[in-house]
Design a protein around this nucleic acid. Sequence first.
RNA 1: GGCGGUGUGGCCGAGUGGUUAGGCAGAGGCCUGCAAAGCCUUGCACAGCGGUUCGAAUCCGCUCGCCGCCUCCA
Length: 460
Amino acid sequence: MTTLYDTMTGSVTQLINPGQEAFSLYVCGPTVQDRPHLGHGRIMATYDLLRRHLRNKGLAVNLVMNVTDVDDKIISRAQAEATTYQAIAHHYEAIWWETMDRLGIERPDATPHATEWVQGMIEFIQELLDVGAAYVIDDGVYLRIASVPHYGLLTKQDFDQLQPGNRVEVNPLKESPLDFAIWKRTDSTEPGFDAPWGFGRPGWHTECVTMSIALLGRSFDLHGGGMDLIFPHHENELAQAQVLGVPFARHWAHVGFVEMNGEKMSKSIGNTLDLTDAITQFGGRAVRLAYLRAYYRSPLELSPAVLNDTLASLDRIDNFLDRGESGDVNTDTLATFIESLDNDLDTPTAFSILFEQVREGNIDFDRQHLKEGGDKIATVHAMLSWIGLAPSDDALVIPGEISDAVKAREQAKRDRDYTKADQLRMLIEASGFVVSDTKDGTQLRRDRRNSPRASMNSDD
RNA sequence: GGCGGUGUGGCCGAGUGGUUAGGCAGAGGCCUGCAAAGCCUUGCACAGCGGUUCGAAUCCGCUCGCCGCCUCCA
């Protein structure tokens, strides 16, 4: 029983059918024109969570994510920097994947690039023309919204009621202001491709509909992206599929915005936080936790202060995991955790379950109930693994000189030479460990906060 | 102007009729040589005003605020 909110129906609905074994997922990927910011990471983290969740439940998930590697912004940036659009695209795409790796985002199964699919798009546009749903004018080919049976299913707007005054100036050659370009004719000095309707570039909305159908089929399980893609992007993809009688996505999902000071984080407002920098400063796992602990459809306030708080709560989890030997997973508790994710990816409830285990496990260790505590470590670790947030499982390795220093410090404590004991503690802590004196002797744990954050395993 | 969302304690963030969400920060305590970590205790939180109800953050009405989409945008 896995449910997810569907933008089309406006309600939480079944995501997978009984007996379903495979799951096809298309997520609108980046336009590689600049560095990713915190908003981009949230989309990727959300669909990475969904993908892992479904796969851990036993489905074969096929994730396709496009890369828009030619568009107006890439081209103008290339002109500004006196280079080619290909160079710009390659540069920022490399940064994109490196950054997502550090967030623990698994690579998609396929990453079609717009420039590789131009021929397919040309054929697709020809189909639209053949059925009379598109027309050619001076500056390109346009989709005729009037030929779309039910335009506005996702947006849920009555387009007849729209105020024309608010629209940017309309191309007077278009039959309707709503009609959108599926092929943009350009002059041959600009980057472009030959097509029957003249040299030019495909429209963005045509890119995604063409590639999703080509790689996932005429009907696939889920089409997703950020909230801002609902209109016009996804509405227009759907419009093109509709006029060709393509069933298209069974389910539509959209992730809420990352905000800063209550406003959508976006380039135009200038309130973005660079994702790569945030990961460098707080660690990929802390950023990932910051995304996941909120409900994916809600707006999420992120700032350096919030990320710092999130890092503190991650430390709480990690400190617990270091308290003892891992035991046996409590499968009932894990099941409760998974059930909350089944409920429209209810990660807030999932984390409240996880933190409850942490607190109870800490009590176990305080009371020397090592078996019970160890079982809770195993359970928490299983939860973290399920959602791609487990720490890299490098074992706690204590160098000989450090264990010598610990022994010397314990002796100094017995001798009540606290000056020496404190000097030794400083020495130990300089090596990235934290000293904990307990009734049963000194324990060491890793100083995760002040040491470089380990990169994440993406294959757990 | 149209459509949609939202307003929860210092901060982040769940919750949709009656019991502690959770985390971070703060205060007090336990433990400790001192710490750290952990545990315990602690916050009359639900934008405002009316209404329904035995009982509302949760339902209804009105008011106010904020945000988003309508243009490339994750």
